[in-house]
Amino acid sequence: MTRKYIDCREVPSDMNCSVALSADSDDELLEAAVQHAVSVHKHADSPELRSQLKTFFHDGTPPADAPRKA
């Protein structure tokens, strides 16, 4: 099983959030990412948000250094 991650440092924002989340499955990672997006970034949970978050998923674990922004 390949670990998955999402890294807020890749997403442009005014907050310059440095949180990275990882999990063993897409479903688990998506739920954690949605909770973070709603509680910290004040997004509304929606199918569009969930779809957008999935585009930032990567295999492996987050790098220690900040990735380049998209």
Rank of each mutant, 00 (worst) to 15 (best):
M1P: 07
T2M: 14
T2Q: 13
R3T: 10
R3Q: 14
R3G: 00
R3H: 09
K4F: 15
I6N: 01
D7S: 05
C8D: 07
C8P: 03
R9Y: 10
R9E: 07
E10H: 03
E10C: 08
V11N: 06
V11K: 06
P12H: 12
P12I: 08
S13A: 14
S13E: 10
D14F: 12
M15P: 00
N16S: 10
S18K: 15
S18T: 14
V19F: 02
V19C: 03
A20G: 04
L21G: 00
A23I: 09
A23H: 13
D24H: 12
D24R: 14
D24K: 14
D24G: 15
S25G: 11
S25H: 12
S25I: 03
S25M: 08
E28H: 09
E28P: 00
L29Q: 05
L30Q: 04
L30S: 04
V34Y: 03
V34T: 04
Q35K: 13
H36R: 01
H36G: 00
H36T: 01
A37I: 03
A37V: 01
V38I: 07
V38P: 02
V38W: 07
V38Q: 06
V38C: 07
S39E: 13
S39L: 12
V40W: 08
V40F: 09
V40S: 07
K42E: 13
H43M: 11
H43C: 07
A44D: 14
A44W: 08
D45I: 02
D45M: 01
S46L: 10
P47R: 14
P47C: 11
L49G: 03
L49N: 01
R50C: 02
R50M: 06
S51M: 09
S51N: 13
Q52I: 09
L53E: 06
T55I: 04
F56E: 07
F56S: 10
F56W: 15
F57T: 02
F57C: 03
H58S: 01
D59K: 09
G60P: 11
G60T: 08
P62L: 00
P63T: 12
A64D: 14
D65P: 00
P67G: 01
R68G: 13
R68F: 08
K69V: 09
K69F: 04
A70H: 11
